[in-house]
């Protein structure tokens, strides 16, 4: 009730607050931020640079509130981001989370994610692109627009490509309606670099360039365990050792895609486990149904000399 009759904080009004000083720590613990950072720490394995950047953004929010209280100017920061990194390093997963994060931190109003690629933005004939792009932008208002493999928007080899038109509309909205939506561009590092070289306007309008590092072996094992847990499976102790072995071997083989490779491997392990149980027959109990054994892991082609080698039986 008291807040309703208090005037909005202005330069003149909160002089008392300014003199008394603010307890940033208290402000921090009062907000949702700490519990939310703990959640993030729990849900995302590895990805230190990403977490650091999110902590920065969260801290900025708290400081921004404090600044507002003492009457300093507090403009919303530009939050457009690029996510670069190798396949399977969690760019899309983090983008999904980012929408929720920014919503809970109060930077976007709705917190939904609109995930698009070139096809959703660029039209097929003259005059088709602008309405299409604007349509998507309208849908993303109040949330996060995630453009996967953004470099496909720009096709230098075809000068009449409509991608340029989409880029111009995007840039305009990113500049003028910063309060209304956050744009995240994602893609592989080298191609994003080339994309930015040919579109300097993009680079300067994006404040946060976040690089997703490859996962370490132990992180991949933890990811596999988390996946298993999420699907109500568990690895037998010897299967865990096999899993570590698997990750180490898989990395050196072609088409390694970090967590995505692990997810695919896990799906195949489940299939093998099902077949093994089916062929053994007999009674099954809860523990047997939930356990992935070492033999399910070791049957992978990765152990038989790589994914190019002929498939192992079973």
């Amino acid at each position: 009730m008291s807040t309703a009759i208090l005037p909005a904080p202005t330069a003149a009004a909160p002089a008392g607050v300014a003199q008394a000083g603010l307890d940033l720590g208290a402000l921090f613990t009062q907000s949702e931020v700490p519990q939310f950072l703990a959640e993030l720490e729990r849900d995302l394995i590895g990805l230190e640079p990403v977490k650091r950047r999110i902590r920065e953004i969260a801290a900025h929010l708290v400081v921004g509130r404090a600044r507002e209280m003492v009457g300093l100017i507090c403009g919303a920061p530009t939050l457009h981001m690029t996510f670069t990194g190798n396949p399977g390093t969690g760019k899309t997963t983090v983008a999904l989370k980012m929408a929720g994060i920014l919503h809970r931190l109060g930077y976007v109003r709705r917190g939904h994610l609109v995930s698009v690629t070139r096809d959703d933005l660029v039209g097929q004939y003259i005059g088709h692109t602008a309405p299409k792009t604007k349509d998507i932008l309208k849908k993303a208002m109040g949330g996060v627009l995630f453009i996967d493999e953004a470099y496909y928007l720009y096709r230098p080899e075809n000068e009449r490509d409509y991608g340029q038109e989409a880029i111009e509309i995007l840039l305009q909205v990113m500049e003028n309606q910063r309060d209304d939506l956050v744009v995240i561009l994602a893609g592989y590092q080298d191609r994003m670099d080339r994309f930015f070289e040919s579109n300097p306007g993009f680079r300067s309008r994006i404040a946060h360039h976040i690089d997703f590092p490859d996962y370490a072996d132990d992180e991949l094992v933890r990811i596999a365990k988390a996946m298993a847990e999420g699907a109500d499976y568990a690895f037998a102790p010897e299967a865990e050792a096999a899993l570590a072995d698997y990750v180490r071997r898989r990395r050196s083989q072609p088409n390694f895609a970090n967590a995505r490779s692990i997810r695919n491997a896990f799906d195949r392990m489940r299939l093998r486990q099902s077949l093994r149980l089916f062929e053994t027959g007999g009674a099954v109990d809860r523990a047997r149904l939930a356990t992935i054994g070492a033999e399910d892991v070791r049957a992978s082609r990765v152990f038989a000399g790589g994914i190019d080698a002929p498939a192992a039986p079973g």
């Binding site: 109003r109 849908k139 208002m141 949330g143």
Partner: peptide, 8 residues
């Protein structure tokens, strides 16, 4: 399929 009034 809009979520926010800004688009409208």
């Amino acid at each position: 399929d809009l979520a926010d009034a800004a688009g409208v």
